[in-house]
Write a protein that binds this DNA or RNA. Structure first.
Length: 282
DNA sequence: CAGTTCGCCTGGGGGC
DNA sequence: TGCCCCCAGGCGAACT
């Protein structure tokens, strides 16, 4: 589900709520959630740790604890929610409770719950490296989509030989981290580049347009609290509003610029919307 | 190495 | 109402 803007909002929410809080006990009920450790070790290593630092790279959340780092990837439907007390969790009806796969009981009595209907999300616990960006799970993840150092020359060089359509390359997290299916469509619309364009055909100017559009769109979306199309939310009832600003993704009607009907198609198995008039194939 | 397909999971919506 | 099929904002393994 969430892409960089949604993950950033989750991060801000958790930092406000959890900074300095200590974990008393962890209970994981879906073993696959703990991706790099047996569940028992995952649970026991986290006991007693405090939340110290909060970071994001692409769609990954990184929590620096006392001497461990906890990494979370929400994939399609992962959500965090904090309840005032264990009783509030016990009082949930079966439907609300059945998709909670991890509970972090905090020293102050609150409970951080992780909920994930499709069970795609993953968490990792590691000894804390000097720099959190050296965490094993983040090796191979490219620069964040909002990294000020992201530049056109570098992207041009990195993708010089790639024949895949540009939309597929924007979804490749080793090139740019944090763009998913919704924002890829929006970024290409604003850049006026067809999602089918052969990536190696893009010029430095094209890449600069993509970088500029990415910064504008993701920043606006973060401001708006992210995009809530299906199920994205964080906390209790926090929902974003950027879905109201989408130009092509999921749109049935006509292009806002030229009135051509928006085309719904597939690129690399992913549902894709674009304007065949405004967006030129390179 | 690069590109494509499949599998992981569950629920919602449309068609009959 | 029930059933079946398709779809979903991600990612990695396995394949060509």
């Amino acid at each position: 589900m969430p892409e960089a803007p949604e993950v950033q909002n989750v991060l801000q929410y958790l930092e406000e709520e959890l900074k300095g809080s200590q974990i008393e006990r962890v209970k994981v009920t879906h073993p696959k959630l703990a991706a790099n450790l047996p569940v028992e070790q995952f649970e026991s290593r986290l006991a007693g740790q405090r939340f110290r630092g909060f970071h994001r790279l692409g769609k990954y959340l990184v929590f620096e604890l006392d001497n461990l780092d906890l990494v979370s990837h929400l994939r399609m439907e992962g959500k965090f929610q904090i309840y005032p007390s264990p009783k509030d969790v016990d009082d949930l009806d079966e439907n609300e409770a059945k998709h909670i796969h991890a509970q972090f009981l905090l020293q102050d009595g609150r409970v951080l719950c992780y909920r994930d209907t499709r069970k795609f999300g993953r968490m990792y616990v590691y000894d804390r490296p000097e720099n959190w960006k050296d965490l094993p799970v983040l090796v191979g993840v490219g620069k964040d989509a909002l990294d000020p150092d992201l530049n056109a020359e570098e992207l041009l060089e990195m993708t010089r030989k790639r024949k895949a359509p540009i939309k597929s390359v924007l979804l490749d997290q080793s090139v740019i981290a944090g763009i998913g299916n919704i924002y890829a469509d929006e970024i290409l619309f604003e850049s006026r580049i067809s999602p089918f364009s052969v990536t190696s055909h893009l010029s430095k100017e094209d890449w600069q347009a993509i970088i500029d559009a990415t910064r504008r769109i993701l920043s606006s979306s973060i401001e708006a609290g992210g995009t809530t199309i299906r199920s994205f939310s964080y906390g209790k009832n926090h929902a974003g509003s950027y879905q109201d600003s989408l130009m092509v993704h999921g749109k049935e009607g006509s292009c806002a610029h030229c009135d051509t009907p928006i085309v719904h198609t597939r690129v690399g198995q992913r549902s894709t919307w674009y304007c065949p008039t405004c967006q030129k194939e390179k």
